[in-house]
Design a protein around this nucleic acid. Sequence first.
DNA 1: AGTTCAAAACCTGTATGACAGCTTTTATTG
DNA 2: CAATAAAAGCTGTCATACAGGTTTTGAACT
Lengths: 236, 236
Amino acid sequence: MATFPEVGNAGLVSNAIGAITAHIRMNELGPGDRLPSEAALSKELSVSRTVVREAFRSLAAMRLIDLSVGKRATVAQLDHGAMSLMIEHGIDTEQINVQQIYDVRRTIEVRTATLAALRRSNDEARAILEHAEAMRTNFDAPERVMESDLAFHLEIARASKNPIFAMIVGAFQGVSRQTWPIGWRSRSSDNERHAMNDLHVAIAEAIVAGDPQASSQLMAQHFDESVKALLAAGVA
Amino acid sequence: MATFPEVGNAGLVSNAIGAITAHIRMNELGPGDRLPSEAALSKELSVSRTVVREAFRSLAAMRLIDLSVGKRATVAQLDHGAMSLMIEHGIDTEQINVQQIYDVRRTIEVRTATLAALRRSNDEARAILEHAEAMRTNFDAPERVMESDLAFHLEIARASKNPIFAMIVGAFQGVSRQTWPIGWRSRSSDNERHAMNDLHVAIAEAIVAGDPQASSQLMAQHFDESVKALLAAGVA
DNA sequence: AGTTCAAAACCTGTATGACAGCTTTTATTG
DNA sequence: CAATAAAAGCTGTCATACAGGTTTTGAACT
């Protein structure tokens, strides 16, 4: 008899992955909930611990579960880690370019700006404004300006109250860290750099004021200027 | 002394993943190019084959590489498989809901419609129109209407010539297969269902005509109506 | 020299067993 | 009943083995 029908035919590991996600679904597990041990799953699925481990690793790579030594695996919170790696891989292998990323970001962030203006909590409004102001304050430390810039955009995405937007915006952070300095240097004068910071503050103020129109219009303007700067610097 | 500094401290598997992606980057590998064998990497990194395998599995889970028995691992093409699982996991664990997905899709697809009108090849234009017409033709077989609908949206994303859009739109297909029938049933009459199909044909014609304004406007209208139907059906 | 084809070498998928080190449960003791 | 120590459970990593694919090698033949 050897192999009886099995559930699918794409390898034992794929089956195990399916069984584990099914377990999560059927038991209605949520973030933090514990999964069965490797040994238990190994027994239940009649496969070696090796197979179960590889399935766990796969799920952990996609950030569907968290692993840590000694403890059992737990269901994970939505996270942009895996998507970040996918995007970076796309860049590394020249399947996507920086301009395409900016198009996606612009499309999404014009929307998050709108939503943030409508839905931001007071704490989020304050955080967004603080990040924008930090960009001004640390003008002479580009490293810090960049980090505040990234935090600013991510906080707006969070304030949109749609975790998918937050995940996508987060996923681009890694790549943005590489391209940001290019944009900064390519602005032709400190005046332009100050103008960029001012624009961030203006977006923050529109969101604080709860003005979706102004928020999205200013965000669009910000991206148009950034793309122009990047193109001027000759980024493909 | 035991463990000497190592490269990082997040476990041997993480190190191996880093080493492999670094290998891809430094050798400028592209889709289809072959990676070193497990044994070779195992030797080079001074870790067991087990560790290398788990690293490979992790990368395969994120679809950065392809594995197949007997052959060496190869660099993979950008693919929405991993992101699909992430989204489904988000739904299963109630971290995201259907309305949020529709908001993301609307945001992105209004843009892909615009770009498709500007950039579609003739083949793509024809394929998009065919999918829309197939929705009409197969009116009595909802299953087929759905598949044509999904293919229609994905083809538009591809025609935008931005693989990130295609990846995101593709990632939502799995979930859409679950919610689509709800939307179909929730339209109050066959008239409304025919209207939905007509709207798809109208979008296709706008793209064929190379009219970005009309394309995006009609796509926005399509999503607004779909969301309305879903809300009417009481989808959270 | 070039082609064909079979053997050899290589490679991945899976299983088993072992042990270190961390975490949770259990049992004991005060 | 609380504190604590022992036991049991769990994950991370390693080594080894073998079945069954795939690529390379080499020999035989044209």
